[in-house]
């Protein structure tokens, strides 16, 4: 697909900026192989010391939910308020819960 006009495949880049926090999607890059993808991600997305760990994944390998399925995917959780802590009443005076 991308290769017809001689472009390298697209990869998504995830950066972890500090230990203990999750990797976060920052954007994408083009590269022909894994090593190149990692180096390009490093050269482009960590120029200001933003990263301590990088994940790259071929964009075509990402599976995404479709907008048309939004209702069946996400609406069912709307009425499950009991999953949120604010649903519960705690007697006054009880702390740190």
């Amino acid at each position: 697909m991308q290769q017809q006009n001689n472009q390298l495949p697209l990869w998504e880049v995830f950066i972890q900026s500090k230990s203990g926090i999750p990797h976060k999607h920052v954007g994408s890059i083009h590269a022909s192989d894994k090593k190149m993808a990692l180096q390009n991600a490093r050269d482009i997305y960590t120029r200001r010391g933003e990263g301590r760990s990088i994940w790259v994944v071929l964009s075509e390998n990402i599976v995404s939910s479709a907008p048309g399925e939004e209702a069946e995917f996400f609406d069912p959780t709307d009425d499950k308020v009991y999953r949120h802590p604010t649903f519960y009443r705690v007697p006054d005076g009880v702390k740190h819960m």
């Binding site: 083009h30 050269d43 120029r47």
Partner: peptide, 11 residues
């Protein structure tokens, strides 16, 4: 040869 490499060489 690609924009990514332009940035790499600048580094």
């Amino acid at each position: 040869p690609i924009l990514e490499e332009d940035l790499a060489m600048t580094n």
